[in-house]
């Protein structure tokens, strides 16, 4: 009986909270709020907050065309794999400071797991055979390279700071980082972590491919790049993956830097986490979206490897000297 119960709980984690269903709702709402806020900033009425949901369900009902030049299997499988990989990441991220599934993946693994949804998109686009997808995947890959350096520096400095404080010298475990913050207050309060937090916030729009950094999906220029040949349900799944990615990355930020503020009650924490994620999205994605124009890919790369990386490096150096 106990086994059945625990496996049901496990399935509940995966499929309902904080897994698939929660991600679905949270991601959709965050994207909806983002679109609404951008519209408000441009003095428009804007779409309803549930607009991403409508988009998603509409796409579910559309015809799915497979181009003659495409590799059918990869073309159809890539979105599903990407979505599943995206949701799995969410399971490893503590809800503020309560880890749900621990002991599976650490910070470095998260860094690599974040590549899988992007890779799924790249391979799906690549399999469609469209030349727009070729250009798009080239830009997407450069975006990934661009964001990788600051992310690496941020993660290493977090690992060092928590390790220093815990006496082990270095700590990659997400649940340990959460436990440390629950005991000693948020990492955000440490002087050495402030630059890392800022850099992380600057990385989020690039990593999710939001507006000034969306050279890979420039719909006016290269027809949404890798998605150019997608229609119907697979396209909807990609849109959903994007939405969840926004939520996942902001939730990762919360878990890494704002860990200490939870109440300890998981459901309440999830609401608080969601609220913080919304605020972060509004400031660092919507605002940036509304006031900037799209960067060229080489500008994007330069921005991340110079400005953002320098900020993250400051944090690493400070953490190295134990501040």
């Amino acid at each position: 009986m106990a086994i059945v119960y625990s496996s049901l709980v496990y399935l509940g984690y995966i499929l309902i909270f904080p897994g698939f269903l929660f991600c679905f709702v949270a991601g959709m709402l965050i994207t909806g709020i983002d679109r609404k806020i951008v519209a408000k900033m441009q003095k428009r009425v804007g779409p309803p907050i549930l607009q991403p949901m409508y988009d998603f369900f509409k796409l579910m009902g559309k015809e799915t065309i497979i181009p003659a030049a495409a590799n059918k299997t990869v073309f159809l499988a890539a979105p599903i794999v990407g979505l599943a990989a995206m949701v799995v990441i969410q399971l490893f991220i503590p809800v503020i400071s309560t880890p749900i599934l621990y002991g599976t993946a650490d910070l470095i693994v998260i860094l690599y797991l974040l590549l899988i949804p992007a890779l799924a998109e790249i391979y799906g686009g690549s399999a469609s055979g469209s030349p727009y997808a070729g250009v798009g995947l080239s830009r997407e890959m450069v975006t990934i390279i661009a964001c990788e350096l600051p992310l690496v520096l941020i993660f290493l400095s977090v690992a060092k700071t928590v390790g220093n404080a815990m006496g082990t010298g270095l700590c990659f475990s997400l649940s340990d980082i959460a436990a440390y913050q629950a005991a000693n207050g948020s990492l955000m309060l440490k002087a050495s972590m402030i630059p890392a937090a800022i850099a992380m916030l600057l990385v989020i729009p690039g990593e999710t491919g939001n507006h000034p950094f969306d050279a890979a999906e420039a719909e006016t220029e290269i027809c949404e790049g890798m998605l150019a040949e997608y229609s119907g349900a697979p396209l909807g799944i990609y849109k959903l993956t994007h939405a969840i990615k926004t939520f996942t990355l902001t939730a990762l930020f919360v878990a890494l830097f704002l860990g200490g503020i939870g109440t300890g009650i998981v459901l309440l924490d999830a609401l608080i986490e969601f609220a913080i994620c919304v605020v972060l999205t509004i400031i660092f994605i919507s605002l940036v979206h509304a006031v900037t124009a799209r960067l060229k890919i080489e500008q994007l790369f330069k921005y991340y490897w110079t400005a953002v990386s320098t900020i993250a490096l400051i944090s690493l150096v400070l953490a190295w000297f134990g501040m």
């Binding site: 499929l15 979505l83 949701v87 470095i108 693994v109 010298g169 990659f172």
Partner: peptide
């Protein structure tokens, strides 16, 4: 300093893949 359980991860991924 960290953990990585590939089989556990794979299990999670497979369940989700199946569900989706």
């Amino acid at each position: 300093a960290g953990t990585w359980q590939p089989i556990h991860w794979l299990l999670l991924l497979c369940i989700l893949l199946l569900a989706i």
